[in-house]
Computed example of a mutant assay.
Amino acid sequence: MTAHLLEPHKDRCHTITFDNGKEFAGHERLAAALQTSIYFAHPYHSWERGLNENSNGLLRQYFPKRMDLSNISGEQVQRAVDRLNHRPRKVLGYRSPHEVFFATKVHYTKPPLAVALQS
């Protein structure tokens, strides 16, 4: 399934880093299908998966720990994915992952929220 999802973008998949779970047992097929290198993080070295750890934290805004995920609809997942992929990131020069990945500039139709500062 992962190879199918990444196939249209295989020219941008230079490396993939996985955890050491059994769900990644088919990594050789994925590497061959995408013509990319696969790496595995060392156990208990979360800093080797920084983007993954940060993304998990951002996803927790939509799906908190201990939440029953069996009741989550595909639409809810897609909404969270869209919101996160269009969220500007400091590390990307305040561009969104979508803008960087697709080399585009997104023009938002809504102005940013104004914040009233009190002293």
Rank of each mutant, 00 (worst) to 15 (best):
I72C: 09
A32P: 01
L84F: 05
A103W: 05
Y44E: 06
A31V: 04
D68R: 05
K22W: 08
T109C: 03
K105L: 11
E75V: 10
L30S: 00
I38L: 01
A32E: 15
A31P: 01
A32V: 07
R79V: 01
S37M: 10
V115K: 07
R29C: 02
H27M: 02
R79W: 06
G93S: 08
H107A: 13
A114S: 14
M1P: 11
P88S: 08
S96H: 12
F102G: 07
H45V: 06
Y94R: 07
E28G: 07
V91E: 13
F101H: 10
Q78D: 12
K65M: 13
Y94N: 05
G57Y: 02
K22Y: 12
V81K: 07
A116V: 14
Y94Q: 07
G21K: 05
H98L: 15
H107I: 15
R79C: 07
F40Y: 01
M1S: 14
N20C: 11
L117E: 09
R66F: 09
K10A: 15
A114G: 10
I38G: 03
N52V: 14
Y108G: 00
R49Y: 03
T17E: 07
L117K: 08
L6H: 07
A80D: 03
L113Q: 04
T104E: 11
L58F: 00
L58K: 03
L92C: 00
H14V: 09
P8V: 10
K10H: 15
V115Q: 04
S46H: 09
F101R: 12
M67Y: 12
E99Y: 02
S70K: 06
L69P: 05
H27I: 00
E99A: 05
F24V: 14
L58A: 03
A25H: 14
S119H: 14
D11A: 09
D82G: 05
A32D: 15
Y108K: 02
E75F: 09
A32M: 09
E23K: 04
S70Y: 01
N52M: 13
T104Y: 04
E53R: 04
R29E: 08
R95L: 12
K22D: 04
K110T: 15
N54E: 13
I38A: 01
G50N: 13
A33E: 12
E23R: 02
T36D: 03
T15F: 11
E28L: 11
Y39F: 01
I16D: 02
L113E: 05
A25V: 15
E48C: 11
D68V: 06
T17Y: 08
E28F: 04
W47Q: 11
F24I: 08
V81T: 02
R66S: 09
A103K: 06
R60H: 05
K105I: 09
K110G: 04
P112D: 08
M1C: 11
R83E: 07
H45P: 01
